[in-house]
Design a protein around this nucleic acid. Structure first.
Lengths: 334, 334
DNA sequence: GTGAAAGCGCTAACAT
DNA sequence: ATGTTAGCGCTTTCAC
């Protein structure tokens, strides 16, 4: 049952029905009586305008794309949730795609979404390459970036202050007397990771400590890779006494190795990790974390996108949110 | 740039271009030369048929809806990932919505998706109420259910064998000498929870143990609720010696309380939980789990939906997958 | 081998 | 205060 047949059934034109159903009856001075007739019948027959047809006609689908590298990572899952909630509240639907940390998948997904006429795209880019996204942006697709930022593109972004976060982390570890501090890093061309590692280098240099090249290891954000990296780091002759894990799954991988090697935290090894997780406080000892404000990040990214869609200026173009540091037992002998 | 303007640019009709771009050039005996001209120009100009317009014309959007109660729960996040992957491989896009465990939100989301002309809907229902979903189903919307099943609806479903899972769990705990076994349950009108609790009751009865009513507590699947429930259970005068948590977050909540009360696992309390999680093996002691085959569940749900969409019979209507039991330290004194 | 025309269901400009 | 018409971009029937 569609709008046109409802119109016929009521002896009215499709336009009139359309106007009333769009809630613009008064605006077009449709008589109260007609309005009532239409609304009542529409409810009774369960008639709603077909969104597909509307989208085509209005040149706007009120749908956004959400492109994420790994929805099974709790950090991104929470981010996705925040975006979806904001979007729904604003009357937008969300086409979700998981790029699986692959540039190729990211590129094809973005294309597919684009051809489905999304009004805008929120992306947590895989990182490293930006041409495929730049192309869509130059074709006029409104976009916003979250978490990871392709800085060569003039696309609004929202991310955590990764510099500040790692500064806090390193300072904390130095305060605890550590000097051999290592990093289990994530995807090494993702902006988040680049910033984190750079901040680590800066902070270490400032403290007068030479960072050995074996102290920064890792290729992606998975628990498996965390294990591999941690195993390398903890097998060094001069074993580091502290590790900063650049993601919650990396921390898990690192912990697995620490247990396997029977290292006692924080005595034999201090561990500090990005991302708050419900299990962080439950480990023995509990895990010191750098929480990223996910809900805020998701919401701000959506708002930035909304601004782009309505051709407004987004200022600042790149928003940086403060992390929350929670000191727990994994780094602190009390 | 669209198909029509490309046609004009080539001095051809839109029909011809459409046919070639749909890969049906040979079928319509379009000359090889024309085909080549079209394909080349299309690539060069980056022309792709507008999916919105196609959907309208073809009466199929090649989009499915995915309605989930809480995407930030790792179990559902993994499920969503599996569905999205299958869908993409089959050329479908996924409109994702999070019902936040609310019937109202679920109902509105389902409506919204329906009016966006999704070809089908995969839902992990909040549970308890089914009328809002039944309505859409009776309107002809192909549907499939995952994890939780509304058994009064003739809609295909895929879920874990919750009966078998809890049977294994209870048997294991009995074998360890426990008799006062309690449940931290999830949403008590979700089918998964109902089955799990029923199986618990059956198994206990079979073992000749009377289940006290204080032994089954809980209202939803969150860590917070897990805490509340566990606190009640562990404050009973005759404290249960074992707890089965019906979800991974519930287990976390329970653990929090156990730590707070300085209970030593498994000596003072045995804990066994649904859902495998990357942190399960890392806790001290590690957590005994009942893993659900999420990837398989997501894939099978999508396949069932696909069958519905193409009007095929789905048999069996309700698929039940076997859980994987992993015995770890939280239930076992060695 | 290719094109013209109709129509998917809607909305907006232009009637009256 | 409401209707008629055109058109969003595509596919398909029918025509030549």
């Amino acid at each position: 049952m569609n709008l046109k047949s409802l119109a016929k059934h009521l002896g009215l034109s499709a336009s009139t029905v359309s106007r009333v159903l769009a809630g613009r009856g008064d605006e077009f001075r449709i008589s109260k009586e007609t309005q009532k007739r239409i609304t009542e019948q529409a409810v009774e027959q369960g008639v709603h305008p077909d969104e597909l047809a509307r989208s085509l006609r209005l040149r706007s689908s009120r749908t956004i794309g959400l492109l994420i590298p790994d929805i099974s990572n709790p950090f991104f899952a929470s981010l996705a949730r925040a975006v979806e909630q904001q979007a729904r509240a604003a009357g937008y639907a969300v086409l979700m795609a998981d790029s699986r940390e692959s540039h190729e998948v990211e590129a094809t997904c973005a294309q597919v979404l684009y051809h489905r006429r999304i009004d805008g795209l929120i992306v947590a880019p895989v990182g490293g390459q930006s041409a495929h996204l730049a192309e869509l942006h130059s074709k006029g697709l409104p976009m916003a970036q979250m978490d990871r930022v392709l800085k060569d593109l003039p696309i609004p972004s929202v991310c955590t202050d990764n510099f500040a976060a790692v500064q806090i982390a390193v300072k904390h570890l130095l305060d605890q007397g550590h000097t051999r501090i290592a990093c289990v890093q994530g995807k090494n061309d993702s902006s988040a990771n680049i910033d984190r590692v750079q901040s680590y280098r800066d902070s270490m240099k400032e403290a007068g400590i030479t960072v050995k090249k074996d102290w920064i290891i890792g290729t992606d954000y998975s628990a498996e890779q965390g294990e591999v990296s941690a195993r390398k780091i903890l097998s060094l002759k001069q074993r580091p006494t502290a590790i900063i894990a650049m993601g919650n799954l990396l921390a898990l991988g690192t912990l697995r190795v620490a247990q396997e090697m029977k290292l006692q935290l924080p005595r034999d090894l201090a561990l500090l990790a990005f991302d708050e997780a419900p299990w962080a406080s439950l480990l023995q000892p509990s895990l010191t974390t750098l929480a990223q404000p996910v809900a805020e990040m998701g919401a701000k990214a959506f708002n930035a996108l909304l601004a782009c869609i309505s051709k407004q200026e987004v200022t600042p173009l790149h928003q940086v949110l403060q992390p929350r540091f929670t000191m727990r037992g994994s780094t602190q002998l009390h």
